[in-house]
Amino acid sequence: MKAKIVAEKTNLHPRNSHRLGYDFGLLTQKYPELKKFVALNEHHIDSSHSEQAKQTIDFSNPHAVIALNTALLISDYDIQNWDIPENYLCPPIPGRVDYIHYIADLLALHNNGIIPEGENVTILDIGIGANCIYPIVGNSVYGWSFVGTDIDENAIQNCKKIIEANPKLIDAISLQLQTESRFIFKNIITPEDKFAFTICNPPFHNSKDEATKSSIRKVNNLQSRSFEERTKNPILNFGGQNTELWCEGGEIGFIIQMIYESAKYPMQVLWFTTLVSKKENLSRIYKTLSKVSPIEIKTIDLSQGQKISRIVAWTFLSPTQQKNWKF
């Protein structure tokens, strides 16, 4: 029998279970609905020359991506019931998994090199969306507890449906609607709360027009279609409500607001973190951070395919306070 050769995605975190790509044979067994979206990519080069190695889906088709995510959640994360409403973001799971693993590494620095696991490690997910992906992954891999917040009540209600449909999540994830959209931590972090870290995937764009143009570029990059087909319903193709894709001030405005608010809760969070998609925003982020005087700032580079991103993390706790943090 010929040995199976699989190209490893070395740009993903070493513990990311998706480094070896997608096993569509296994995934379609777990979730047969995915099978109708799987096709051969004749342009794929793989030394094994196997049909399985060349299997793929059309990543510009939101139904295909939702089916793939559903199969991955069943196969890798023991989630039996998951769905999102039409037009909501359907994030690529491998990138979300990387965020969780890198934050786990950060927590291990304060725990004698051992990643803290279990329900006593509580994480605040800012902008949980309708998909609930970060809490699902973090709870499945490390047993962590989550508080998920959003300004979109429909997104919160869909997360509630996901949690109720998967009993193992009921005691692990709580949800809170942010009723004042101009705030991030206000109304959410109470005086009794202690979070090991906060996570956030902030809106990228500063207007609906900018978000639409970005989606059109993504469609154009992913597949070759007529201009009319490529530009039709770009927001639909990639999903995303307005609150997920853009906000006043865009990514940098959102993160600056987050930084200033974080200074009001210095002892209640071990690490504040956020994704930063635009490298040009880093200088303003560092400048704003200098104004609130954190003890430590870290930047962690991420990459998935052609997309380059990074996590910026900061803490107001001294090294001694960090070491004495109780998980």
Rank of each mutant, 00 (worst) to 15 (best):
L124H: 04
I84L: 08
L106R: 01
N139K: 11
C132V: 10
G95E: 11
I84G: 02
L89G: 13
C132M: 06
N111S: 14
C132W: 05
P135D: 06
P85H: 11
I114V: 14
Y99C: 12
I114E: 09
P91K: 11
I136M: 12
L107T: 00
T122I: 12
P91W: 10
Y134I: 11
A104F: 06
A104W: 00
A130H: 10
I114N: 04
G118E: 07
D105G: 08
N111H: 14
H110K: 08
E117Q: 13
A104T: 01
P116E: 00
I84K: 00
V137L: 15
D83C: 06
E86S: 13
R96S: 09
V97C: 14
I100R: 03
G113A: 02
P92L: 11
I114W: 01
P92K: 06
H110R: 07
L124S: 02
A104E: 02
V97D: 15
N131R: 02
G113S: 02
I103D: 06
D105F: 12
P85K: 13
N131C: 06
G113W: 01
Y134E: 09
G138E: 04
E86A: 12
S140D: 08
P91R: 08
I115G: 02
A104M: 05
V141S: 03
V121L: 01
P94G: 12
I123A: 03
Y102M: 04
G95I: 10
Y102D: 04
Y134V: 11
H110W: 10
P116A: 01
G138H: 04
P85N: 11
I126M: 02
G129K: 03
E86Y: 07
N87R: 14
C90S: 15
D125S: 11
N111A: 05
L124A: 03
V141H: 07
N111I: 04
I115N: 03
G95C: 08
N112E: 13
G118W: 04
C132T: 07
A130F: 09
N139Q: 13
I136H: 07
G138Y: 03
I133M: 10
P116W: 00
V121M: 01
Y99S: 12
D125K: 02
N120D: 15
I103R: 13
Y88Q: 03
G118T: 08
Y134W: 10
A108C: 00
L89I: 14
T122K: 15
S140Y: 12
D98G: 08
P135S: 10
P116G: 01
L106Y: 00
P85D: 12
N131Q: 07
Y102H: 15
H101T: 06
D98A: 12
G129H: 08
V141N: 05
L124I: 02
P94Q: 09
D83R: 09
N87M: 10
Y134L: 15
I115L: 05
D105I: 05
